[in-house]
Design a binder for these strands. Structure first.
Length: 548
DNA sequence: CTAGGGTTAG
């Protein structure tokens, strides 16, 4: 029986459930019940449940669940799926699971499984998600996409890529959403080879490169060290939106191309795309890495006055970092205490880093104290503090910090670096000897050290944490993870080809200056992405102009 | 009428 009035209500509720204000959908549903002219039918519930899920109205959803039972709709696949989604998104995952099991009993379809897996993923329960995934009678491309996106969005980049490969192995054709989901993971891993492969796949299969996929590609190329390709993808896009611009500006900032980033911002304004808070993070970050203090201050001002954006802790972070790097420690500290929110560990770490660079020991001590209160178990701050003392030669204080670390059993975050060769990612830690080609790698490292020494290079050991003899410190430096990765790259690639290394921490000062020389001696461009930014080493110098 | 996607300080 077709009821046109009910159809009209359903359509409106559905429209609101997908809008920015899903709560309106709920209000409409209530009105429908109050007016009592038409009752809800099986098509009403998925929409109103979606509104509940998106408005996080789980209590309201539970009441509606009661009505669903009254209406004997509990075995309707669409309704059950919507209920699971509601409970998974804002209720209890075990309620969702109970409904899922019942639904499977009613002969649930692939969507039911996908929603349950998505629920587990949203709760960070990847074990349960994967178990269910492996047990699925039929998997659609959406099932694969959900798992890939789930891993990627929660920082499990390797797992995301593994699932992507497994999907290929099973002969499932990736679609637009698949590539958009896996690209951020590839970007974080810095695997340019795989990223290029995905891009080629997109072109071969004529997958539409819209603003969403375009942004993902731009970000992938910039995070994988190829800012030229990122710019190219941007230029080839038929249309740009704010996110595409943000990806491009952020990429240029990461690569230290501050002036280009600012030119892009201007071009974006000319094309009448309104910049967002994320745009300004990119612009301010560019100014910070480029040492453009006055420009940065001006943009911070414009963000507030012209675009009415409220600066977030990230914006203050960029500003504090920018001022600190430039040696304006007093102004940085002032900004820190005048900002309207409590500083987080990231912002304090940026300032502490600046204190170390500019040997501002007193301020450094104050910041370190606050940092230790905020994140007492974190090693990074102790390392920075110790490095700060070391750089002014206060070895007694270095020893004290070391002792404190030992007493509190706080370990330095393990540094690791990786390089992708012929589609395989090789990861190394300091003094790594687990690689099958360790012998060759170490003889390459010896060769590098020897050539550096002949070039008159003297190691900068002030950033070595170990309280050991000079010679031993130097040895440790020579086996930092980024050097091992570079040595492995040198022995496993064609002469003259570019090496791309990713490191999880900031590159140390000694590795930085020796990389410059290594690039010259071996005639290689070495592109290192550290936690902070890109360093392009070429012909004995670095793109960061040693301002980092 | 039910499922999956991009940019964000250090």
């Amino acid at each position: 029986m077709h009821d046109p009035n009910c159809f009209a209500w359903n359509t409106s509720i559905r429209a609101f459930s997908e809008s920015d204000d899903p709560f309106e959908g709920l209000l409409l549903f209530r009105r429908m019940l109050c007016e009592g002219l038409v009752g809800p039918n099986r098509y009403t519930f998925p929409s109103v449940l979606k509104a509940c899920a998106r408005a996080c109205g789980v209590e309201e959803g539970k009441q509606i669940h009661g009505q669903i039972i009254k209406w004997r709709l509990e075995s309707d696949g669409f309704v059950v799926t919507s209920l699971i989604r509601l409970y998974a998104m804002c209720g209890s995952i075990s309620d969702a699971r109970r409904l899922f099991d019942e639904g499977v009993g009613y002969g649930g379809n692939v969507v039911l499984w996908n929603v349950m897996i998505d629920g587990y993923v949203r709760h960070g329960m990847f074990g349960s998600a994967k178990r269910l995934f492996d047990r699925m009678p039929h998997r659609s491309v959406v099932s694969w996409n959900g798992l890939i996106a789930g891993y990627a969005q929660n920082g499990f980049f390797k797992e995301a890529v593994d699932v992507f490969r497994e999907m290929q192995g099973e002969g499932v054709e990736p679609n637009h959403v698949t590539v958009v989901s896996v690209l951020p993971a590839i970007a974080r891993l810095g695997d340019l080879g795989l990223g290029k492969w995905v891009h080629a796949f997109v072109e071969k299969n004529k997958i539409d490169v819209d603003e969403v996929l375009g942004s993902a590609l731009i970000d992938m190329y910039s995070k994988c060290g190829s800012i030229e390709k990122a710019v190219q993808v941007f230029k080839d896009l038929p249309k740009a939106n704010v996110v595409t611009w943000n990806a491009l500006i952020g990429g240029l900032a990461m690569h230290g191309q501050a002036k280009d980033a600012i030119q892009c911002f201007k071009a974006m304004e000319r094309s009448r795309i309104v910049p967002s808070d994320v745009t300004f993070i990119g612009v301010l970050n560019a100014c910070s890495h480029g040492g453009l203090v006055d420009v940065g201050r001006a943009y911070f001002d414009r963000m507030v006055r012209e675009y009415n954006l409220k600066p977030s802790i990230e914006h203050y972070g960029c500003m504090v970092d920018m001022l600190g790097r430039a040696g304006l420690l007093e102004e940085a500290e002032e900004l820190l205490s005048s900002m309207p929110m409590q500083p987080d560990d990231a912002i304090l770490k940026a300032l502490l880093w600046a204190c170390r660079v500019h040997c501002e020991v007193e301020l450094g001590k104050r910041i370190a104290k606050r940092l230790m209160e905020l994140a007492p178990r974190e090693g990074g701050c102790y390392v920075l503090l110790s490095n700060m003392y070391a750089s002014i030669g206060d070895w007694e204080s270095v020893a004290k910090v070391r002792l404190l670390m030992k007493e509190l059993d706080i370990r330095k975050d393990p540094g690791s670096s990786w390089i992708s060769i012929d589609g395989a990612v090789h990861e190394f830690v300091v003094e790594d000897d687990s690689h099958p080609r360790t012998k060759e790698i170490y003889s390459m490292l010896e060769g590098m050290s020897e050539k550096l020494r002949l070039a008159g290079y003297v190691s900068n050991t002030t950033q070595v944490l170990l309280n050991v003899e000079e010679e031993e410190k130097e040895t440790t430096l020579h086996y930092h993870s980024e050097r091992i990765a570079v040595a492995f790259g040198l022995i496993s690639t064609e002469p003259g080809s570019t090496l791309r290394v990713v490191k999880n921490l900031r590159i140390c000062a000694d590795c930085h200056s020796s990389m410059k020389l290594v690039s010259k001696i071996y005639r290689r461009t070495i592109i290192v992405r550290d936690r902070n930014r890109f360093h392009h080493f070429k012909d004995g110098s670095c793109s960061c102009k040693d301002y980092w």
